[in-house]
Design a protein around this nucleic acid. Sequence first.
DNA 1: CTGAAAGCGCTAACAT
DNA 2: ATGTTAGCGCTTTCAG
Lengths: 343, 343
Amino acid sequence: MATQKELAKLAGVSAGTVSNVISGSVRVSKGYREKVLSAVRALNYQPNLIARSLKTNRTRTLGMVVPDITIPFFPKIVRGAESAARERGYFLIVLDSEHNHAREVDMMNLLRSQRVEGILLVAAGGSKEALETPGSVGYGPPIVYLDRVPRGIEADSVSVDDRKAAEMGVSHLLARGHTEIAIITGPLTLKNEQERLRGYRQALQRGGVPVRDSLIWPGSFNRDDVVRICHRGLLRPAGRPSALFATNGVTGLEALRSIYAAGLETPRDIAFVTFDELTTDDFFQPGITSVLQPTFDIGHRAVEVLLNRIEKGRPNRTPDKIRLPATLVVRESSDLRSPKTRP
Amino acid sequence: MATQKELAKLAGVSAGTVSNVISGSVRVSKGYREKVLSAVRALNYQPNLIARSLKTNRTRTLGMVVPDITIPFFPKIVRGAESAARERGYFLIVLDSEHNHAREVDMMNLLRSQRVEGILLVAAGGSKEALETPGSVGYGPPIVYLDRVPRGIEADSVSVDDRKAAEMGVSHLLARGHTEIAIITGPLTLKNEQERLRGYRQALQRGGVPVRDSLIWPGSFNRDDVVRICHRGLLRPAGRPSALFATNGVTGLEALRSIYAAGLETPRDIAFVTFDELTTDDFFQPGITSVLQPTFDIGHRAVEVLLNRIEKGRPNRTPDKIRLPATLVVRESSDLRSPKTRP
DNA sequence: CTGAAAGCGCTAACAT
DNA sequence: ATGTTAGCGCTTTCAG
C-alpha cells in the first residue's frame, strides 16, 4: 500500500506537504493540494493509522469486552456504544470474554496493547474475586463498567437500577393479587442478580407479604440447571406458586420453557414476569410481561461517560455512576383477568 | 505506559536485549532474562503493538464486517470466526455496516487503514451494483465473503448451498402432501435469496407441482412489509395456501407473527417451515420446522480460508468457494399428522 | 550473547 | 507556503 513518501514523489512535493494536505492541519496552496489529492487517488492511498498512532499517541479507538456476544442483550448494547463512538469519531473494537475471567484479563491486556483510549467492560463475573480484579485496574486507559458494576472499586459505571427494576416487576404481580410469588435468578455471584433479588424482597415487604425461602430459587445461565430448578419448584408437593418472576432473559426463557414443559400455561396456571426481552418479545402467545432495560442507551451513555473522561482528562474526578431506569411492559402473562388460550 | 527503553534502564541492559527477551526470537542469558522479566513486572509493561506492527508490517489482526450484529444469525458466525482466529493467534475486529453499503465501504477502508491482514465480509447488499463493488476490491488485504457470495468476482467464499437447502425444506413439505406451498423471501436483491427461491422452484418442479406466481411473495427484512405481504397472502380470496416456506429467520419470524395475528395455527391451519433458528428455536408450541445453517462453522471455516491465503501467500491461486450443507430439523409446524394445540 | 543503530510511516516543530 | 528533520516504540541487522 502506498505511503506518503510515494505520494510526495508522484506529486513532486515534500513529504511534509503531503502530510499537511492529508491531516488538514496546515494550509496548503490549492495547486499543491490538488496534485497531492490526485496522487492519493492514483495510488489508492490509505493512511497508515498505525504509524499515525505511534506518532500522535492517539488511536481514536475504544475497546469493549462482553461476556457473550450471542446473548441478545449484548449486541443491543454494542449497537448503542458503536453509535455513540461513531458520532464522536471513535472506532470500537468488540471482544468476547466467553464468561471467562482469565480470558477477560487477556482481552483487556490486548486492548491495552492495542492502545485503545478507553474500555467498556461488562465484567465476566463468576467468582467475587474475579469481579474485583478485572485485570489489574489502576493503570492503563479509563474503564467504564456497564451492566455489572463492581463492588468496592470507585469507577465510572452505567447500569440499570436493578433493585428498583425488580421491585417494579414484583409489585406489579402483587397488584394483580398474587402473594405466592417465586423468583428464579441468575448466578448470585453477580451483584446485579443479588440486587434484583433484594428488589424482590423489598417489594414483598412493602406489600406486607412474607418472604419465604422456599420461593427463592437461585439459578444460573445454564439451560439444564434452570429447567431442573423450575421443574422441581413448579411440581413441589406444597403446590406451585401462583406467579414466577425471572431476573434475566436467559434464565427467564428457560423458566418459561419449563412452565410449558410442565404442561402449564401463563397466566392461566401461573403468572409470569421476566427481566429482558425474550428475543421474540411480543411474540409469545400469550405475550410475556417484561422488565425492559434501555439497552441502546446503556451502550450510548457509557461511551459518553468514557469519552468525557478521556477528552476532559480529569483523572481524579469523582466517578460517574449512572443508573438508568427500566420500564415495565405489561402483557398477558401476568394478567389474571384475560386468560387467553392460543397455541 | 512503560516502554522497552525504560525496561532497559531499570534492568541495566540495552534496549535490543529487552526486545530479544520479549519477542523470544533471540536467546538471552538466563541472568539478563530474569532481570528484564522482573522489570516487566515492576513496570507492568505491556508491549506496544502499534510500534511492533509498524516495524514488522504485521498486525495479526483480522477484520470482519456484518450487516447487523443484532440479528442472531451474525453473532453466531462471529463466534466461530473469533474462535478460529484465536486458535491461530489472530485478533478479530468486528464492525457493523448497518445494511448500508456506503458505511460498509467506510468500514472496509478503516480496516485497511488499521492494516488488518484479511477481511471477512458479509456484504451489506441492497443494490446489485453495491454488491459488486464492495469498496474497490483488488487492492489491500485478502477478502473472504461469507453467507452472501458476490456474483461475478472470483473470490474466496464460505456459504451455505442455498438452493439445495431451500429445496430440502420445500421437498419436505411436498413429502407431507402439500401442493399449495407459498414462499416468502427476503430482499431478492440478495443473491442467496434468489438462490433460495430457485431451490423452491426446483423442488416443485421435481415434485411435479406447478409453480404459481401468486404463491411467490417477495419480501424484505422489514417487519411491517413482511406482515403486510403475509396478511394479504394468507387472506386472499383464492384461499390460503396449505403451507408457507420462509427463506430467512428475520422474515420467517415476521411471517409466523402474521400467521398468529390472522388467528391461524401451525400446522393445523397452515404448515410452516423457515430458514434459520427463530431465536427461541425449539421453543414455539408447536415447534417450528427449520432449515439450519452451520453458523459457527461458517465463521470458523472462513477464517481458515483467509489465514491459509494470508500465510501461504499464494495471491493468484484459484479461489476457495466453500459451500456448507444446511440441515433440516423437523418439528411440529410442518407435521400434518399431529396437530397439537398448545398455547 | 549483547549493544549500537537504522528505519517502519507518520506528524509537528522548525527553518527557509 | 513549503521543505527538512527528529522521533514515536519497536525489531533487526550488524559489530563487537
